[in-house]
Amino acid sequence: MADVWRHAWLLARKDLLVEFRSRTAILSALVFTVLVLMVFNFGRDPTAVAAVDLAPSILWVTFTFAAMLALNRAFQLELENQALDGLLLAPVSRSSIYLGKLMANLVFVATVEAVGLPLFALFFNVPILHVLGPLLGVIALATVGFVAVGTLFSAMTARTRFAELLLPVLLLPFMIPPLIWAVLATGALLAGRPLSEAAGWLRLLAAFDIVFVTLAFVLFPATVNE
């Protein structure tokens, strides 16, 4: 079991090293985040719509797009020189490959979120420090949810034509439930509602995560073994 994690970590580190070298995906994600935040800010009429009403939706649109960018390149990397075959030949379990990808994707998305969240608070003048703890909890849980499913699906779509179109279509129904709960919880937290209200949605997010991370972990070998 320790081996599984060790190998996963080696794989994740490799992914992050490659991403750090090429930098294209992370930069696009960061640029898009800033762009969306700016457009939403200029686009709204401050007298008509309070920032707090729109805030959760805007935040989650940016995070979702960052996740999609990460997921799209996740397995493309392995197909370039058939490195995936190399991974399958090596004495590492298939689960390590999934875990490694998952961890690397999470770091990628977390990086974008770490930049997006402060910018969001800044541009929209939304105080978040008083609920920072629970807010980070919501963000973490929701992100794990759709990145877990997305990592599994990207292993399948990477080998098809129109991979970049197919992945969002497949992922959409799986992203909506955690997004709904995340937007509701974020809204409740930012509006200063008692923590107990958000707790219900946090529980749902946690349940979704546990179920789907396990499921993806179990199903991943079926996508790469012949």
Binding site: K14, L17, D85
Partner: peptide
Amino acid sequence: WIGHQPQLYAHLTVRENLRFWASLYD
């Protein structure tokens, strides 16, 4: 294994590739 495809990561250096693959084999 040596096959039709090199199974290397294009953005990593030669040494980094060797280091990575060696690490997978402990």
